[in-house]
Computed example of a mutant assay.
Amino acid sequence: MNITPARIESMFRSGAIICRILQCAISITMLLISPACAQQSFDNVAGSWSGSGSMKPSDGPRERVRCKVDYIIKNAGQSVKLNLRCASDAYKMELSANIDQIGNMLSGNWFESQYRQGGKISGKNDNGLIEAKVESDTITALLTVRTKANRQSFVMESPGAWVSQVSIDLFRDQK
């Protein structure tokens, strides 16, 4: 059997192509696995939390508000269902939301039953800091939620909405 230089070059070229394909496959696999390993989760908020703070209605003075929130974690920590109840002397709010997370990106929906409003949620979760945008046909609000150990702070800004600012400190309820 006589192997010509052109045939040897073709074999090396084929081997190099196969090697490149394997390198690409390994790189893609590592990229897919790495985010899954480093992925944020909602596990640090699981359970019931309660606390107080203040809210600023657009048509009146700042009011004290008391809140309770239950976080139900699903999908191996990548989804959360939350039920939030808040009350001041003049207002009552009952909000539920379903939020999913892919990597550190958040998406989901919400509904407030007292005022019959709902919409979508989008944002990101980076190491216990959630920055999100809540939207409906009539409002847009920016949220910042920080969770550290058994303490959580919640700040909402929504200029022009019926409640323009909310600030609440929550603590994990003892079991």
Rank of each mutant, 00 (worst) to 15 (best):
Q78V: 04
S79Y: 00
I72Y: 06
G51M: 01
S50D: 12
K74I: 02
D59S: 12
A76F: 12
G47F: 08
A46Y: 05
D59C: 03
Q78F: 09
C67S: 13
S50R: 12
G60N: 07
Y71S: 05
S54N: 11
Y71R: 09
Y71F: 15
V65I: 14
K68M: 12
A46Q: 13
V69G: 03
P61S: 15
K74E: 14
S54M: 07
G47I: 08
S54A: 05
C67E: 06
S52P: 00
P61Y: 09
V69R: 14
K56Q: 15
R64K: 12
I73M: 04
A76Q: 14
V69T: 15
S79F: 00
M55D: 00
M55R: 04
I73V: 15
S48G: 02
A76H: 11
W49Q: 04
D59Q: 12
S79R: 10
M55I: 15
V80I: 04
G60T: 07
E63F: 05
S50V: 01
R66G: 04
G51S: 01
I72D: 11
R66S: 14
S54E: 11
A46G: 07
G60F: 07
R66K: 12
P57M: 03
Q78W: 06
N75T: 08
A76M: 10
D59V: 05
R66E: 13
N75L: 07
I72S: 11
C67I: 07
S50M: 09
A76L: 13
W49E: 03
G53E: 00
W49P: 04
C67H: 06
G47C: 06
P61H: 10
S54V: 10
K74G: 05
V69I: 15
D70C: 00
S54L: 02
R64G: 09
Q78Y: 10
V80S: 00
I73T: 09
Y71Q: 08
S50N: 14
K74Q: 13
S54D: 08
I73F: 03
P57R: 02
R66A: 11
I73Y: 04
W49K: 02
R64C: 04
K56E: 13
S79C: 04
V69H: 05
R62W: 06
S48P: 00
S58A: 15
Y71E: 08
G51F: 02
S79T: 13
K74W: 03
G51P: 00
V80R: 03
D59F: 11
G51W: 01
G77D: 02
Q78R: 15
Q78T: 15
G47W: 07
A46C: 03
G47N: 07
S52Y: 05
P61F: 10
E63T: 05
E63D: 06
I73W: 03
D70I: 08
D70E: 13
